[in-house]
Design a protein around this nucleic acid. Structure first.
Lengths: 210, 210, 210, 210
DNA sequence: TATGAATGAGAATTCATTCAT
DNA sequence: GATGAATGAATTCTCATTCAT
């Protein structure tokens, strides 16, 4: 009981730090955000941050993982597996854009260079989650005969990278000003890849949204 | 003569700083590299750095632009325009991998977030160069009837982003350990996109290298 | 108790910085004194200075205000108001010289130019205190019929300025070498102003000291 | 001829530096003005400044002396000596205000603390010039029976100090906003001192300005 | 004389981290 | 656990001065 409560409070304090840090990192960037800023935003003392995180970088990693996890969740939606594959590319692309739009300022975190091997492996871990979720979807489709066999892992990886970077360009660099355009063409590329026709053979006739 | 020499010396000093910075940034990362380090590496005084760059960030931008420019050059190779389009994807992908492999440690610079609008616009500029070069190649192919018409600008943008991120993942994250795999599948994705077949319709039969 | 102690310690740390700074500024001047010097003299860490003052200039202002306040206190002595006015000029002049002699090295602070409007207003504030104290003394004398009515505010202002500058000249420039002379004639000028005779009408016959 | 010309050019270059420095010191203050600023303003190279002045402080002294000299000139006006003494206080006060108003921004230089003994002595020198000119005027008046004998040197010194400080307060601190008030009362004080009546004896009936 | 690129000592300031309470 | 005052290493950037041309 007691320990549960404490654990809850611990959880909530840790979360408060993460939320504060996420907000500030997004607003001012990593270097410009101080531990004191984070503590103030989270309504705790500076020293308390160090009870939950070893150092500033550690806080950063916590935040980054949170965000990646949020995106990863999009691909784990069990509803996705029930759809006929022909609807899946749109569902995924829609999902990615929805999450990214909601967390526009956080997208830049996806790109921050990983410095220590620990961060690397943490990042890889999340990345594998995403890739793996995608691959499962593809494998399901192959098994159901909706797709011809292909290297689902690599395609998942590449599509995941493409998604990351389009989100970054669309929301972090261009501030979402051409979201519709990116949405349209990201989807078109993915659908062309899965269903054709190739660029040599003709104009895609998937309904352009709008 | 005289002015040429002076200009040359200026150029060489500026370049010396950029080379030193590039080396150190790649080795230790941006934050861990001090202006003093750079000056030492370049065999000049600290103050001299500030004769050629307004501040540390400015040095960084100089380095980043250098690298982006190096990659952009790949796409401007006039030989590319003479090839039949069917050979172009491979030529481009090969080029990107070659340049990236040579400057492996620098790839991470492609991803560092641009903070000021000035940096943004500088980055956009280089990005547009690349996108534009690609678009020209595609338009040529369309005009020659090698491709059906499509939005060359958006496809160029998307492919450029994909290339960036694959290079980052392949060389910066994975240290080139699976270069061949990325090369194969990046190429396959691009060729599938341009020439088919779609993933629904069948296995690509472009020669897998190896 | 607890809070008192803390507050006391804070006070004492702030004061330690001010005392250290005052000493060093007087010995080496503002520009030649570094924050590191001050911290060393005050037996604290460099960073601690910045817990109590925003920057070096801020420390300087603190010191300057301390000193101005010390001088202002001379004029607020309640004993002054009880004296017959005929004794007041001597009392004031004596007071100014006494304080100035004690803090000879600090007198130069009275003259350092105020740069920001904040400093200006702080300075004005202290200045008004002094002027106001003087004016009150004069008004009392007018009310008691010891003086004819006059613009007490402006005369206070002018006399205060005169005092400042004589102290500066006497102690900061001439190192007190001719203190007696300045004392004599400053007093003579003030008494002549208040009691006559004018320089046209005759030699002052107030006892020259010595 | 040639040497004359060179000497002229030297003179003009030295002067150009002084003019540039005066402008910049007045605008930005001593510390905020760099040698590079001065050189730019004077349209010469940085190194050239060091051909005419040993160091930055030396430039400063040159500027300060220029200004003090300008003020000193007011008191040397031979017309002053021809006036009946009763008109002299007004003439002097008017002169001081006129010069000060014209060089409002420079007034602050009168107060900058002298740091080296060399500067001190330079400053003393100019100060003595002024004091001496005043003393001469007073002595003339005494000899002509217009004033009773008094210590002309000390009174000159004190009045000179008073003038400096009133100018500083009036123009540097208050930006000339209450010039008229200061003019009126500075004059009144001086005239009261010379001609009476004392503050005990009555209201001054010298025409208040206008 | 004149130049101005190069120098490098030096200073202010910041802030992650600690630890006594 | 929680606090936040204190720390002090470390860094960027400035700018007076020099000197080869």
């Amino acid at each position: 009981m007691e320990s549960d409560k404490l654990s809850d409070e611990s959880r909530s304090k840790r979360d408060a730090i993460l939320v504060a840090a996420r907000t500030l990192f997004a607003k001012k960037g990593y270097e410009e955000t101080t531990i004191a800023d984070i503590a103030r935003e989270a309504n705790i003392a500076v020293g308390t941050v160090y009870l939950y995180f070893r150092n500033k970088r550690d806080v950063y990693i916590g935040v980054a993982i949170d965000i990646e996890e949020m995106i990863a969740a999009t691909f784990r939606d069990p509803e996705l597996l029930k759809l006929p594959f022909v609807q899946i590319p749109r569902a995924i692309v829609d999902g990615i854009f929805r999450v990214s739009r909601e967390h526009m300022n956080l997208i830049s975190f996806l790109q921050v260079d990983m410095q220590t091997s620990e961060e690397m492996s943490q990042h890889k871990h999340t990345n594998e989650h995403i890739t793996c979720s995608l691959a499962k979807i593809f494998q399901g489709a192959i098994e159901r005969g909706e797709l011809a066999p292909f290297n689902t892992e690599m395609y998942s990886q590449i599509l995941s990278l493409l998604g990351d970077n389009i989100m970054y360009q669309c929301f972090a660099v261009e501030k979402g000003e051409r979201e519709e355009l990116y949405h349209t063409y990201f989807l078109e590329v993915v659908e062309r890849l899965f269903f054709g026709p190739s660029l040599r053979d003709g104009q895609a006739n998937y309904s352009k949204d709008g």
